[in-house]
Amino acid sequence: MKRRMILAGLATAMLALPAGAALAQDNTMAQIRDNGVLRVGVTQAPPWYSKDPISGNWNGGLGVSMGQAMADALGVTFEPVEVTWGTAVAALQANRIDLMYVLDATDERRQALAFPETPLLYYSLAILARDDLEVSDWADLNQPGIRISVPQATSMDAFLTAHVPDADIQRFPGNAEAIAAFQAGRVDAVTLFHPPLIAARQRLGRGQIIVPQPVESRPSSVGLRQEESTEFLDWVNEQIGEYYQSGQTQEWYEEFLTEFGLDPASVPPIMRERL
C-alpha cells in the first residue's frame, strides 16, 4: 500500500512539471526555450573570449558576439559560463553549458560530444617573425641561418620538420616557451596556429604575423552535448553556416581585433577563402 502511494505521488509530481521539462532532459533546444537562457562556455582567450578585468563582464571576442547573436535569434538571454579548454567537455556532459565555440572536433572529443558538420572558422599555421624578416612562403624559412621556435611533438613541429628541414628548428615544451624564445631574441620566428600569436603580438608590440604559402589551415567547430534529439545541433549548424557565408563571422573577428588595438589587415583571416 505504501509503495503504491509513493508511485502515485511520483506520477502526480511528473504531471505537475512544465510541459517541456521531460523533453528538456534530452533536448537542449527545449531546455533553452523553457529556461529562457543560452549558456555559452567562455574562457579568457582573445580573440575568442575576453573578460573586462574591471567589471568582470565577458564583453569581447568572437564567441561572445556570436553567443549574443544566437541568444537574440532564439529570444532568450545570453549567459556566459566560465570554464577552461580542459573542462569544457565535462561541462557540456554535465549540462552546465549548452555549447562552446572554437572547440576543435578531434577524434577523442567526437566520442564525447556532438559537432555540427559546418566548420565554424579556420585556423592558419602562421609565424610571428622579426619585422625585418622577409617571408612569403615556407621555402623562405628553409635556410640554416633561420632560427624557428615551435612546441615540441605537435602537428606544428611535424609540419616544420617536413617542410623546412634545413632551418634551425628549436623545440620547446609549449606555446609560452616558444613565444618567450622569440621575445628574448633567441629565434627569428615562432610558429603556431595563428590565434595565440595575436595576443603575443599585442603584448610584445613588435613582430609581424605571416601566413606563408602554401597555406596550412584547419577547421574549428562548436562543441555540443550528445543527445537523441538533433534539433539544437541542426539549428547551430545552420546558424554558423549563415554567419560564415555572409561574412558575419569574419566581421565579428575583425571588430574584436580593432578593439584589441590591432589592424585586422595585419592578422590572418579566419575564412579560408580570404587567405
Rank of each mutant, 00 (worst) to 15 (best):
L7D: 11
A8R: 13
T12A: 14
T12Q: 08
T12H: 10
A13T: 04
A16K: 07
L17P: 02
A21E: 10
A22D: 04
I32C: 03
R33P: 06
D34Y: 09
G36V: 05
R39H: 12
R39M: 11
G41E: 11
V42H: 10
V42K: 07
Q44H: 15
P46S: 15
W48S: 04
D52C: 06
P53E: 09
G56V: 09
W58P: 06
W58D: 09
G61Q: 08
L62W: 04
L62K: 02
G67P: 12
Q68T: 09
A71I: 06
D72P: 05
T77K: 15
F78C: 07
E79R: 08
V81N: 06
E82S: 01
V83W: 02
T84W: 06
G86H: 09
A91T: 00
A91W: 00
A91Q: 00
Q93M: 02
R96T: 01
M100S: 08
Y101L: 05
Y101P: 00
Y101A: 01
L103V: 14
D107I: 09
D107F: 04
E108V: 10
R109K: 01
R110K: 12
R110F: 00
L113R: 03
P119H: 04
L120Q: 14
Y123I: 02
L125V: 01
I127V: 13
L128H: 00
R130Y: 03
E134R: 12
D137E: 13
W138A: 00
A139Q: 13
D140Q: 02
I146H: 14
I146M: 13
I146W: 10
V150D: 06
Q152V: 14
T154Q: 04
M156E: 11
A158R: 15
L160T: 08
H163P: 01
H163S: 04
Q170L: 15
F172W: 11
P173G: 04
G174S: 14
G174W: 05
N175W: 08
A176P: 04
I179S: 03
I179K: 02
A184V: 10
D188E: 13
D188K: 12
A189R: 07
P196E: 03
L197I: 11
I198W: 12
A199P: 04
A200I: 07
A200H: 01
R203E: 11
G205L: 09
Q208I: 13
I210Y: 05
Q213L: 13
V215Y: 08
S217A: 15
S220F: 00
L224H: 03
L224E: 01
R225H: 06
S229F: 12
T230G: 13
E231D: 15
F232A: 02
L233E: 11
D234H: 05
D234W: 07
D234E: 10
W235G: 02
E238L: 07
Y244G: 00
Q245A: 15
Q245R: 15
S246E: 03
T249N: 09
Q250T: 11
W252N: 02
W252E: 03
E254F: 05
E255V: 04
L257N: 10
L257P: 12
L257A: 08
T258G: 01
T258W: 00
E259H: 14
F260V: 10
A265K: 12
S266D: 14
P268R: 05
I270Y: 03
I270N: 03
R274H: 11
R274M: 11
L275N: 07
L275A: 07
